[in-house]
């Protein structure tokens, strides 16, 4: 089983400050950690590997200093660490990030791709599912338990607002995980010592073969206008008529409220 865990280095704080003028995160002076949800993804990868055999690669896209996060992943026991880094990646939104990561995953090859459910500095929860879409493979988000994994098959529990779903999938699959999934292990001293000396595999845009237009700021359709916690509206509307009429009405309504 080949497992790739996508990790992100984030500032060590749940309440990162935002520069009100540029609407971007202020990162200076905050120590970096592996995104906490990604720690659960790493743990899941290691547990699957320990059961089924194979190996786990940690993959991150980021500046050269993101190597720190990879060394930490190595100290926890991942077999390989890959740094996807290129000046051209700068300014990437979730779309461009996922596109680049998908390119790297394709190169590495994977049966299972694991991501945290979201990064605590952006909170979009988009990159995982987007990678799966770019790779054209199934994904299951908010995985809280992995029930069974075998050649070509996986069964997991997906956390829902009330209870959970049991989801089966073929492999390859991408899972995004929640913290209920496991308790991340502590690094070991031997792991830390080995991680200090380990070689980090480096990839740039040429290695993943992505053109200028799909990269970084240029490849990023998102424009951040304002950041706020969405208001939760729990309106309910019932449609009547034949199934066809109901679907038409539903689509029209979704267009109306700008969901489509």
């Amino acid at each position: 089983m080949k497992i790739v865990v996508c990790i992100k280095q984030v500032p060590d704080s749940a309440d990162v400050k935002i520069n009100p003028e540029t609407n971007t995160l202020i990162r200076e002076g905050v120590p970096s950690i592996i995104n906490p949800f990604d720690m659960h993804a790493i743990e899941a990868g290691l547990q699957i590997r320990d059961k089924t055999g194979g190996d786990v690669a940690a993959l991150t896209m980021g500046p050269p200093q993101a190597e720190g996060a990879l060394r930490e992943a190595l100290s926890l026991g991942v077999n390989e660490a890959v740094l996807l880094s290129d000046r051209a990646f700068a300014g990437a939104d979730t779309w461009a990030t996922a596109y680049a990561l998908a390119g790297a995953v394709k190169k590495l090859g994977a049966d299972i791709i694991l991501c945290g459910k979201q990064a605590i500095d952006g909170d979009t929860a988009q990159v995982g599912p987007e990678i799966a879409e770019f790779l054209d493979i199934p994904h299951v988000a908010y995985v809280r338990k992995i029930e069974e994994v075998k050649e070509g098959y996986i069964r997991v529990q997906r956390l829902m607002d009330e209870g959970y779903d049991i989801v089966e999938s073929s492999l390859p699959v991408l899972l995004t995980v929640v913290k209920e999934l496991n308790v991340p292990r502590m690094p070991s001293l031997k792991g830390k010592m080995a991680a200090k000396k380990a070689e980090i595999k480096k990839m740039n845009r040429d290695d993943i073969g992505i053109g200028e237009a799909d990269l970084g700021l240029k490849g990023s359709p998102t424009q951040v206008k304002n950041i706020f916690a969405p208001e939760i509206k729990a309106d309910r509307k019932m449609f009547e008529g034949s199934a066809e009429e109901q679907v038409k009405a539903l689509v029209a309504e979704m267009r109306n409220i700008k969901c489509l």
């Binding site: 502590m186 690094p187 001293l189």
Partner: peptide, 11 residues
């Protein structure tokens, strides 16, 4: 168990 996993018993 955590101390074991972290290699601290082998110091």
């Amino acid at each position: 168990k955590v101390l074991a996993q972290s290699d601290l018993f082998g110091l």
